[in-house]
Design a protein around this nucleic acid. Structure first.
Length: 123
DNA sequence: GTTATGACTTCAC
DNA sequence: CGTGAAGCCATAA
């Protein structure tokens, strides 16, 4: 099985199947790992903290590629609307993320969104 | 080489 | 608050 349908080169350190040695990925993983429990950050925010102000999509791409066993708190990353990723609803991942956040004390409104002004992580 | 797509953001209307 | 357009960038075809 040579053909890697995932990114070339896994990253055991982060427990994810993302390229190792890639500064962007390393920075993104580091930032997300620094998100305190009970707080959340947006993709753009993570990208900015990682030194890539407008590479929010890159953050999302990395997260989608993470392994289920990853140690990275991916559930603390939400979009700018304060809602979990839309594409996750395809496999029910949005419910998982929401539950994980609620377990950490995050409250959702009737539209499945959280108060970013209240929950946004500040460094 | 081009075109389309995507765990996104931001501004304008 | 919803929608559309422009921006960004790697992957897939």
């Amino acid at each position: 099985m040579k053909r890697s349908l995932q990114w070339p080169g896994a990253n055991p350190r982060t427990g994810s199947t993302v390229p190792r040695g890639d500064k962007a990925v390393e920075a993104i993983c580091a930032v997300i790992s620094r998100i305190p429990k009970g707080w959340v950050a947006t993709y753009g925010q993570v990208a900015t903290m990682a030194g890539m102000s407008r590479r929010a999509r890159l953050v999302g791409r990395v997260l989608q590629h993470l392994d289920p066993k990853t140690r990275i708190p991916w559930h603390r990353v939400v979009n700018a609307k304060g809602e979990v990723s839309c594409s996750l609803s395809r496999n029910g991942g949005d419910i998982v993320q929401r539950r994980l956040l609620e377990k950490e004390g995050i409250e959702f409104d009737g539209k499945g969104r959280l108060d970013l002004e209240r929950c946004r992580w500040r460094d």
